[in-house]
Simulated assay, not measured.
Amino acid sequence: MKLLFIVDPLPGLKIHKDSSYAMMREASARGHEIWTAQAETLCVRAGRIEIHAAPLSFSDTQYGHDWYTEGDYAAMALTDFCATVMRKDPPFDQQYLYATHLLSLAEAHGAKVFNSGQALRDFNEKLSVLRYPQFTAPTLVSQQEDDLRAFLAEHGDIILKPLDGMGGAGIFRVRNDDPNIGSIIETLTCNETRTVMAQRFIPEIAAGDKRVLIIDGLPVDWCLARIPKTGETRGNLAVGGTGVAQALTSRDREIAEALGPQLLAQGLLLVGLDIIGDYLTEVNVTSPTCFQEISTQSGINVAGLFIDAVERRAA
């Protein structure tokens, strides 16, 4: 098959842990033709949804920038590919939104896109947990300082986070006695002009913020618990958390099996649920990670499971 991966610039990929790299390498090992492109080159020309793409081949080198060779870039229609895998990282800004609209147009012309443009628009990675209140800790969404202060007064220990970030960026833990409450709220809400999310603090974060992967509606049997470093609340690997693979708990599986079929029906082939303790905290759909960490520690070929799903859906 001829597969297109829309990714961030290749020189910046950290191939020792990057999930997009693992996907592409797995697909190439199976004999598929791999092309890559950046989302900002999407365009509409003469009614066709095109992108500036180049063929990719892999070298034996596993380090540095010598792991790949690119062919010549060309304007290609998304319908020229058997499948397109959208893997651009957030932030989900206005340009990202435009890209999802172009992906939806391409799908209307017959292109197969994973995850679909419509699903990427519908499932904000923070707000989507509100669809599943039976699995979430107490949550507030607001841009009003009075609302956020009242939520803090009610729960005493909360997490504040922006709605468009990734990797733990912009996340604050706030307690009633924090002398910086006002400044934190002003900064995150841009003086009550930007909506944020507040969640009751979940002490089980000490045991890890678990990334549970759902592929083609089914949970991967092992997850990655991202354990905060000393003195840190966030477990994200991007801010120094330690990733420990572990088998799903019964609660992890309950949540994943309840959501999996619904998410697949909405056009989401790959989802990364974030679960702390018994609570769902995020539904990651843009570029879920942790493939390599789970594979290395558990022996499960997660990239293989994903490419299996792409092959099925593109056939």
Rank of each mutant, 00 (worst) to 15 (best):
G240L: 11
L264W: 10
T249Y: 04
G167K: 06
I214Q: 02
N176G: 11
R194M: 04
G182D: 05
M166Y: 06
G208V: 03
R200H: 06
Q199L: 04
N191P: 01
L263I: 15
V141N: 04
L273H: 08
Q246V: 11
R211M: 01
L237H: 03
E145I: 09
Q266D: 14
G267F: 15
V174E: 00
A245E: 14
R253I: 05
R173M: 11
T193M: 07
A238H: 15
R175G: 12
A207T: 01
C223S: 10
E192W: 00
T233S: 07
I159D: 04
R149W: 12
L263K: 11
N180I: 10
P219G: 00
C223R: 12
T281S: 06
D157Q: 05
N176E: 08
I171E: 11
T249D: 08
E257A: 02
T189C: 02
G272D: 07
A206T: 12
F201T: 02
L273P: 03
E282Y: 15
I185S: 03
A256I: 12
L213C: 00
Q246A: 09
A258S: 07
G240V: 14
Q262S: 13
L140Y: 06
E254I: 11
G165D: 09
I171A: 05
F172R: 12
I158G: 00
T187M: 15
A256V: 05
L140E: 03
I184C: 07
A150I: 05
L152K: 05
G182V: 09
R251G: 01
E154P: 00
V174C: 03
R234V: 08
T193C: 02
G240R: 11
L237M: 13
D209T: 12
K229F: 06
S250G: 04
V244D: 01
L280A: 11
E204Q: 09
